[in-house]
Structures are given as structure tokens and as C-alpha cells.
């Protein structure tokens, strides 16, 4: 078993916090791990990445070779594209779709999404909306790691332990917000995959994930939602409305 993950985002988005959670889970699980990160000049608001590898055998290189990454885990959609050539052919993308626009030539967000949508193996969640629902916009990194936890090799509880350890100094309220962001991110990820596996096109699945109130993204209902959005007449009003409540709308068993 080995797993190679490229963590990506923008300086200040908390990439190293994601690394902390996974590093510790890997160590606690008895794995070898290496995690290379960026400090100094490269950090100031620029693109930030970290190579994180864990395995049940010795790991040689601190850097992941191109074509060897199992996963690009990004807190920002454009940043996925900076590293997707590291992915092996059957590699996965897990990303927030919330753009971080701090440059004048940021491409059209729809174009970025359309590009990510070409990957069949992806999990795309709305980091900002979910983090807000969890109680703090800054928790988008924990949303991303929550969504990615579906592709990792650790029990949810173990990861949550290290989310708690990470924020312990800041008090129980902040711990709870970040754990909730993680949990909602994980649920949103499963909901998204449920839709895609039931045949919903990726852009529609992203749209639906965005429109639904995060606390109502129920993975168990993904298949039902898939049937709803497959019907253009039912889908149109939903995909155009502002936030809607899943429990009000989904025709269970339809």
C-alpha cells in the first residue's frame, strides 16, 4: 500500500494544517511517511503545494514523481490544474470549487470547473459554502480534507482526533467548527460521488451540491436526486433557484 498526495492551494489557506492531520494519522497507523512543503519566499500569497506520501514500506523520495500521484487535494480549483500532470492515469482530484481570486488574470471560474469536470475520478465540493455552514469561512481546508478522507486509508474518527489536536490551543468552539467542517466536507463528498455514480454529469453535480443547504446533503438520497436532475423539467427550477432544502424537495422513492 502506498499513497501519494499533492496538497495544493494558496498561501494562507492552511495547506500545512491538512498535512498535519494526514501526517499524524499516518504516523499513528504505523505507516512510513514523508511530506515536503514550501516555506519562505514561495509562501507569501503565492501558489503553495506540499507533497505528502505514506506507505507500509520505505519511501525514498520526498518529492512525488510525475505520474505517481494518487490524489491532488486542493483547497482551490485553479490550483488543481497546476499539478494535475503529477497524477497517475487513474488518479483522483478532490477539490473545493470556491475560487481564490488574488490575481488579475484569474480565468473564468466556469472554464476552470469545466476543465476539472473532464476528470471522471473527482470529488468537487463547495468549500466556502460548507465552511460557512460549519461556522467559519476559514475552515475550507478542513472541508477539503473531509471530502478527501473518502480516498484516504484512515478511519474518520482518527482523522477527527487530529483535527481536534490541530485546533486544541484555540479552544473547544474552534475545534468543533473545524470538526464539523470536516464532517460536512466528507458528507458532501459522498453525496457528490453518489450523484456522479448515478449518472449525473459532473457540472450538474457541482451545481446541485452548491444549491443544496450543506446540512441537508444526504448521501443516502444521492440516487433519488440523480433521478430528479435527470428530468429536465424537474431539474430546471432546482438548478436555477437559490439555496434549497433537500428534505423539502427530494421526492423520496420517485
Amino acid at each position: 500500500m502506498d499513497k501519494n498526495i499533492i496538497l495544493a492551494g494558496v498561501g494562507g489557506q492552511g495547506i500545512l494544517s491538512i498535512a498535519f492531520v494526514i501526517d499524524n494519522a499516518a504516523l499513528a497507523s504505523g505507516f512510513e511517511f514523508k511530506q515536503a512543503e514550501v516555506h519562505g519566499m514561495a509562501q507569501r500569497g503565492g501558489a503553495v503545494q506540499s507533497h505528502l506520501r505514506y506507505a507500509d514500506h520505505e519511501i525514498h523520495s520526498d518529492l512525488i514523481p510525475k505520474g505517481a500521484a494518487d490524489l491532488v487535494l486542493s483547497v482551490e480549483p485553479l490550483e488543481v490544474m497546476r499539478y494535475w500532470h503529477y497524477l497517475r492515469p487513474d488518479g483522483w482530484i478532490v477539490s473545493s470549487v470556491t475560487p481564490y481570486v488574488n490575481i488579475p488574470d484569474y480565468p473564468e471560474p466556469e472554464r476552470v470547473l469545466a476543465q476539472l469536470a473532464t476528470f471522471p475520478s473527482c470529488i468537487l465540493v463547495d468549500g466556502a459554502q460548507i465552511a460557512k455552514a460549519a461556522g467559519n469561512l476559514r475552515a475550507q481546508n478542513m472541508v477539503a480534507v473531509g471530502a478527501a478522507s473518502l480516498r484516504l486509508d484512515f478511519p474518520e474518527e482518527l482523522l477527527l482526533t487530529y483535527v481536534a489536536a490541530l485546533f486544541e490551543r484555540k479552544g473547544p468552539a474552534i475545534v468543533e467548527v473545524n470538526q464539523q467542517a470536516f464532517r460536512l466536507g466528507r458528507i458532501a463528498g459522498r453525496f457528490f460521488r453518489g450523484l456522479v455514480e448515478a449518472g449525473v454529469p459532473v457540472p450538474t453535480a457541482v451545481e446541485l451540491g452548491r444549491r443544496l443547504a450543506p446540512e441537508t446533503l444526504d448521501p443516502a438520497l444521492a440516487a433519488d436526486w440523480a433521478r430528479v436532475v435527470a428530468d429536465p423539467e424537474l431539474a430546471a427550477p432546482i438548478l436555477q433557484s437559490e439555496e434549497i432544502r433537500a428534505c423539502d424537495q427530494v421526492p423520496v422513492g420517485a
Binding site: 497546476r82 488518479g91 488574470d105 476528470f119
Partner: peptide
């Protein structure tokens, strides 16, 4: 090694 995608060459830079 084969990869899932070619490197994006015209990506907007995000300098520090």
C-alpha cells in the same frame, strides 16, 4: 511514467 493529464502550460501564475 504515464500521467493523467499533460502539464497545463498557459496557467495564470500566482506569484508571491
Amino acid at each position: 511514467r504515464p500521467t493523467a493529464h499533460a502539464a497545463a502550460d498557459d496557467l495564470a501564475n500566482r506569484p508571491p
